[in-house]
Amino acid sequence: MDKMKVTYEVMLGLAAEMVWDDALRKQRSEKLYMEIDKALATGDEVAFRNLTDELKAIN
């Protein structure tokens, strides 16, 4: 029973980490989209390219 409890706790920890990672990735994506919009509005091609590269990397 103890081994099963440890396994269950490890699985819960992994699931929580996956949820956390997904939330962080979504938050960063939203921020990147906003920054990309600003770069487009101001005509900043370098920032646009850097931001879109980062967005591609996290997706």
Rank of each mutant, 00 (worst) to 15 (best):
D2W: 05
D2A: 12
M4A: 14
M4T: 15
M4N: 13
K5C: 08
K5E: 13
K5H: 05
V6D: 15
T7L: 10
Y8F: 11
E9D: 07
M11S: 10
M11H: 06
L12Y: 01
G13W: 02
G13H: 00
G13E: 02
G13L: 04
L14Y: 04
L14T: 00
A15I: 05
E17Q: 01
M18G: 00
V19A: 14
W20I: 00
W20E: 01
D21T: 15
D22C: 11
A23P: 04
L24M: 15
L24K: 13
L24F: 14
K26H: 14
K26D: 14
Q27H: 11
R28H: 05
S29C: 12
K31F: 14
L32W: 08
Y33D: 11
M34T: 11
E35I: 05
E35Q: 12
E35P: 00
D37F: 05
K38G: 02
A39W: 10
A39E: 08
L40W: 06
L40C: 09
L40N: 05
T42G: 01
G43I: 11
E45K: 07
V46F: 08
V46Y: 07
F48D: 02
R49Y: 03
R49E: 03
L51S: 06
L51W: 07
L51M: 09
T52H: 04
E54Q: 14
E54W: 00
L55R: 12
L55A: 12
L55T: 07
K56C: 11
K56A: 13
K56T: 13
A57I: 02
I58T: 08
N59E: 07
N59Q: 06
